[in-house]
């Protein structure tokens, strides 16, 4: 088992190197540079400009800049944000809990609705529940996130007034120091009446928006995995044993179908991080997605590079965990191989 984990971790190293390169290149492919943004529309004289470029190390050739960047990374230095002059690491981890909270709720919603919907569709294959689930899934999958988010805000926030439009908490009525960074938990710890409900109401719409695509993917994958598994001999054996239908479907078939579904759920984490960028922007959610968008707009190279890197590592770690879970779910993987 340890060997298995070490192997996986070793494999992460080349991926990591690739990501540093990609992160480095992508931000520099954007038109404009930090100095242009910093100095504003009117600009500064060329000498001052050259000095500023030199100060940021941007006058060096790209390969040198890259080596310098990687060299600092190896020492654990992710650089300072050009906008705030605070370490990228600090900035990132200050905002990470907000995104994690959102992503966690979103994936929970996606699993809680997607898996049962997929099972239902598979069991009622070719009949109206199947068509309904698959139709909704296709719609959800095809929907642009920002548009979907705006629609929901129009209906539930501005229209019906059920949910707040943006933010994480009703800050007029509540204030407490962050402890964990997870608003729901902090609200609970604060002991203020109604704070948890307020946090949850703020969380509801963004997490529904963020969960839409993963939910659609999970529903479709669950359906096809279940269809495959329901035709297996051991399902027939389970019926031959006289087990009730729900037990055959939810225990014997689902356990096997989950092997593929868990892999898909792991892959959705990446989708979720991408979706967080848009969702956080729409709902003014102070997480890393929104921070990254702002960093990109400011051409804040160190922040964008650091953010991309951290997100990539996060996705890789989640996938590693999924790999380990896989062994737990599938006994055939557990023994060696």
């Amino acid at each position: 088992m340890l060997r298995f984990i070490l192997q996986k971790i070793l494999l992460l190293i080349p991926t990591f190197i690739g990501i540093t390169l990609a992160a480095f290149m992508f931000v520099r492919l954007l038109p404009g540079d930090p100095v242009t943004i910093l100095t504003g529309e009117r600009g500064v004289d060329p000498e001052r400009r050259a000095a500023m470029m030199a100060q940021l190390g941007l006058d060096q050739p790209l390969p040198l800049q890259y080596l310098d960047y990687v060299g600092k990374l190896l020492q654990g230095d992710f650089g300072q944000s050009l906008a705030t002059h605070r370490p990228v690491t600090e900035e990132f981890f200050a905002r990470l809990p907000a995104t994690l909270e959102l992503a966690l709720f979103a994936i929970l919603i996606a699993i809680a609705l997607g898996v049962p919907a997929g099972i239902l569709a598979a069991v009622k294959r070719g009949r109206w529940p199947d068509h309904l689930v698959m139709g909704v899934a296709l719609t959800g999958y095809s929907m642009p996130i920002f548009w979907w988010g705006l629609l929901l805000i129009m209906l539930f926030s501005t229209g019906l007034g059920w949910t707040p439009v943006s933010g994480r908490l009703d800050i007029i009525n509540y204030y407490f120091e962050p402890v964990t960074g997870f608003m729901v938990i902090d609200a609970w710890l604060s002991g203020e009446r109604g704070a948890v409900a307020s946090a949850l109401r703020h969380l509801l719409l963004p997490s529904i928006v963020l969960s839409t695509i993963p939910m659609a993917v999970i529903a479709r994958q669950t359906r096809s995995a279940m269809l495959e598994v329901l035709g297996e001999d051991y399902v027939r054996t389970a019926y031959a044993k006289g087990l009730p239908t729900w037990r055959v479907i939810l225990v014997h078939a689902l356990r096997n179908a989950l092997i593929t579904v868990v892999t898909v759920i792991g892959l959705q984490i990446g989708v979720l991080m991408a979706g967080a960028v848009l969702t956080e922007t729409i709902f003014a959610w102070p997480g890393i997605g929104k921070w990254m968008i702002e960093a990109i707009a400011r051409r804040d190279y160190p922040a964008v590079q650091g953010g991309l890197l951290f997100i990539a590592v996060l996705v890789m770690v989640v996938n590693l965990i999924v790999d380990l879970l896989y062994g737990w779910i599938n006994p055939r993987v557990r023994d060696g191989r």
């Binding site: 001999d233 051991y234 044993k241 006289g242 599938n330 006994p331």
Partner: peptide, 23 residues
């Protein structure tokens, strides 16, 4: 369901695939 596996039982051609790999 009371009969299946109770009064009458059946075994199949492919024992390997007839058993659930996860249990």
């Amino acid at each position: 369901r009371r009969l299946n596996g109770g009064t009458m039982a059946m075994i199949f051609q492919e024992p390997m695939s007839s058993l659930n790999p996860c249990f």
